[in-house]
Amino acid sequence: MKTRKKILVACGTAIATSTVVARKIEEELEKRGIAVETTQCKASEVPSKAEGHDLIVATTFVSGAGDIPVIQTVSFLTGVGIEADIDRIISYIEGA
């Protein structure tokens, strides 16, 4: 069995938007038979928390992610463009 890919979800405060984004990502990937592990953090915590993750999904600008790919999107909050972002997430984690 493949190990679960780890996605770090970052937003401004790590209390509201990242909670929703993390849950939506898990649900959408689960529908496609992909199980992932998500962790939430503040955008400012990305440099210290990025290590060990396969991908970072952020609702706001983040820096200090090193070599880890970052997808900046608000689609999981607005509902606009979720499919395209899920495809991007899958292409990153399948390639990771």
Partner: peptide, 9 residues
């Protein structure tokens, strides 16, 4: 630092 407007459809 992190604006909160959501650009819904």
């Amino acid at each position: 630092a992190h604006p909160s407007g959501l650009p819904m459809a």
